[in-house]
């Protein structure tokens, strides 16, 4: 299961995390996001023990989207040691993302 992220737990779960974190910025009304949702869900399973996977609803968390310059969804960002190391914009292949871990 993916973690539901928001401003309240972002610091603790993402920026202070010892493991890498994959964060999915999405919205319910976004078609391409719906196509990515099952991919992100299965990434959460496959990366268990290796990395965390979380999702951010941009409708409810506009501040986080603005802070990380997310202006197109779906956007997936990998954070390592609290810093962005890789960004994927749009629908992507699962393996392309897995290869980053």
């Amino acid at each position: 299961m993916e973690l539901n992220l928001s401003l309240e737990n972002f610091q603790k779960e993402v920026l202070n995390s010892n493991d890498p974190v994959l964060v999915d910025f999405y919205a319910d009304w976004c078609g391409p996001c719906k196509m990515m949702a099952p991919v992100v869900e299965s990434l959460a399973e496959e990366l268990k023990g290796k990395a965390k996977v979380g999702k951010i609803n941009v409708d409810q968390n506009q501040d986080l989207a603005i802070e990380y310059n997310v202006m197109s969804i779906p956007t997936l960002i990998i954070f390592k040691d609290g810093k962005e190391t890789k960004r994927f914009v749009g629908v992507r292949d699962k393996n392309e993302i897995l290869n980053e871990f």
Binding site: G31, P32, C33, K34, M35, M36, G90, V91, R92, D93
Partner: peptide, 9 residues
Amino acid sequence: ARKVGAKIQ
């Protein structure tokens, strides 16, 4: 394709 969420490479 991009608008409806089809994979593009």
